[in-house]
Design a protein around this nucleic acid. Sequence first.
RNA 1: GGGAUCGUAGUUCAGCUUGGUUAGAACGCCGGCCUGUCAAGCCGGAGGUCGCCGGUUCGAUCCCGGUCGGUCCCGCCA
Length: 589
Amino acid sequence: MRLKRTMTCGELTVDNVNQEVNLNGWIATNRDHGGVIFLDLRDRYGKTQVTFNPDIDAELAANARRLGMEDVIAVRGIVQLRPDGNVNPNMPTGSIEVVVSELEVLNESQPLPFLVSDRESGSEDLRLEYRYLELRTAELQNFMALRAKTYGSARSRLTAEGFLEFETPVLMKSTPEGARDYLVPSRIHKGKFYALPQSPQTYKQLLMISGFDKYFQIVKCFRDEDLRADRQPEFTQIDIEMSFVDQSDVLGVATRLARGMFKDILDYDLPEIFPTMKYKDAMEMYGSDKPDIRFDLPLVEFADYAQKTEFGIFKDNLAAGGRVKALVLKNAADKYSRKATDGLTEWLRTYYGLKGLAFVKMEQNAFSAGISKFFPEALQAELIKDLHLEHNDILFFVSDTEARTLQSLGALRLELAKRENLIPEGVIKPLFVVDFPLLDWDEDSQRFIAMHHPFTAPNPDDLELMQSAPGSVRAQAYDLVINGYEVAGGSIRIHTREMQSRMFELIGMDEAEAQARFGFLLKAFKYGAPPHGGIAFGFDRLIMLLAGTENIRDVIAFPKTTSASSLMDEAPSIVDEQQLKELHIKLVE
RNA sequence: GGGAUCGUAGUUCAGCUUGGUUAGAACGCCGGCCUGUCAAGCCGGAGGUCGCCGGUUCGAUCCCGGUCGGUCCCGCCA
């Protein structure tokens, strides 16, 4: 190219007036007034108006007239002040323009499938097909720049704390505990497969055994599970592991890193100490293991009150080991007509399999509507006092199995908060959730499975429960939750062979199977494994929070759809017979 | 695996409720006019397998079934 840029499209100001500059970029808009032609030239630094005046050079203006949106051009010209009254205060470069003397058309663009100036001008599937064009939009340019800045922040913050950055294998052994693995067939080893890492968990533990007491990695992880608005099959973690530490040390690093990143990127000050909540309390108070604590609206334990009602369903569920919990929404009863409550009931039924949602409203000093007739006067008085109920409050009740009660009322809490605008804008509330259970009973396989992963150390205070009541053993596991998103999770790991074997035993993995899957790790534990633990940040979710978006696809350059395909390059795709043959793979119908 | 929802010019949508002659608008595109705009403006034009397959019907963009694709959710995500 002839007119290589001397400046970017975002940096010219009144200070550059009368300078001759070259600009390169894409045509964002063209405004042809018959005479003078205005083009907004765009690169990732900004936009600058360039003008062509036929009075100065008729041929040049005629050439400019033929240009269209997203053509790539290079111009040479003089920076000039815009005439009086023609300054655009909405543009950082709005005081100046470049009066073009030379034009080089670098490449023309076909008519566009959607407007680069307006991300909403194309549906999402169309934008994903032309992702490279969508990435030109201001919004995604900003998100990607923010993401890049966050890589840098994480790296420098961790490096400053003495962490060493590593790379671990992407082709690894399949360890089918937890998420489904993405498998990679081996050409050399017929019938054998690598797996893509769900996380570099075992490698980072081995690095601890190697003596690299502070490890980190910004790393892709792969999980072949169904997608969500905040879940992609390949995603990025900031993976951290440390030796000779306990839970408080890891939470300290996570706190400093999170504070550092929010400071570096948003100049937002997170508290020096993040609040901590026990898993059990989170479930009881918020119906979630990742509660959004930007607003209150806690779940109210209602079992004792329920016994004093004449509502049979509550009592039956309690007798059957179920639960009754309530939510009090202040001063909103008038907004919840029969139609509205029916809508909520239907929503909970469809999404959470809940049979019913009960409610009562406060009318002056008494209950009305819903199931109010099942509440004796004395109980009403008691509730009004205990729950500080006032006119126009509405109480919602859920009664079902414990799991379903907590989950659906937790979901209702979030939904009501959204509807009632209870979630403050611009506020970032971190929370550590701790004391997760070590094990989770799996109905399908009728056995315990590791709630976090099978390398998580039990709480030393609960060791005797491992025999008597495995389901009640607490793990030294923790999550960092920010605004209701699980942003990071980790644990103190088991570092002795004996404890690791006990753990495998608890989840029904016999010695032979443990050897086959994790023999290498068990062997390593015999050679002086230090106590260690760590945490991993979901990098994409972190960027979502920093960017203020609720969609993980917004912060990944080339994301996949909810059916895990890439609309742009059409992955996954069929492959040649020859490729399959080399891999010793035969497709079956 | 299950549920909900969407699919109509290049694009975003309307039309479908109550099936019927020529499926509209805006943006974009093409042409013309216009010397200070910045979402430029004005005039004109081209552009449609109504996602696909099947059914009902004299007749289907519209009703029904299936299917494919997007999105959101449940399950799943150690």
